[in-house]
Amino acid sequence: MDILSTEGLTRRYGTGQTMVTALDHVDLRVERGQFVAVIGASGSGKSTLLHLLGGVDRPDSGKIFVEDVDIATLGEERLAQYRRRKVGLIYQFYNLIPTLNVKKNIMLPMLLDNKKPGKERFDDIVGTLGLSDRLEHLPGQLSGGQQQRVAIGRALIYQPAILLADEPTGNLDRKNTEEIISLLKLSNRQYKQTILLITHDEGVALEADRIIKIEDGKIISDKVVRL
């Protein structure tokens, strides 16, 4: 059963002679609980695809269905709600709020909804991420790997159906990379979350169930490597 799908998804940047088509009529289907890796060269359009799926960018044309709702047509408030509750985004450069401590950074999507996570769940996530003794620290006081764990914690806190990760290990060393991928796989298994992972690293891509390759804004290959 598809959790997300796109139809003729197109995104262009710039105007006139400087116009670049980042995504060109992309059709894609992802099943619930799948772990998908998206690979491609720099500027191929993979990040653009992820941003459109995450509702942080708007397509020029095409449709994006998430659980049968076309998020491309949602208003600003509904789209924000979608980002808060339905999808978790993880960036390469962590993108944490530097003035909020680790605890609040993790709880941020729920706090924006004026909610607090259950203590058990929160403890479970921070325990799994190994951040229990760093909760009062500010992001600037953490290592790169720890900051990425905080970003993952933030993406997981609302138990979203989809996790979108944009080169989450691109800024990390081998040890931290392995740990982060393990965490994502754990999350995929434990919480039955659908994961879309963008990476340059073929080793990382091979950890996924399915590998999609993008070039010049088009899907040029789509292989299921694990059932």
Binding site: G54, V56, A80, R83, R84, N95, L108, P109, L112
Partner: peptide, 14 residues
Amino acid sequence: QLGILKSVGAGPKQ
């Protein structure tokens, strides 16, 4: 930072 807030679900009103 406002972009980060938006990307994790802060609405326009917020």
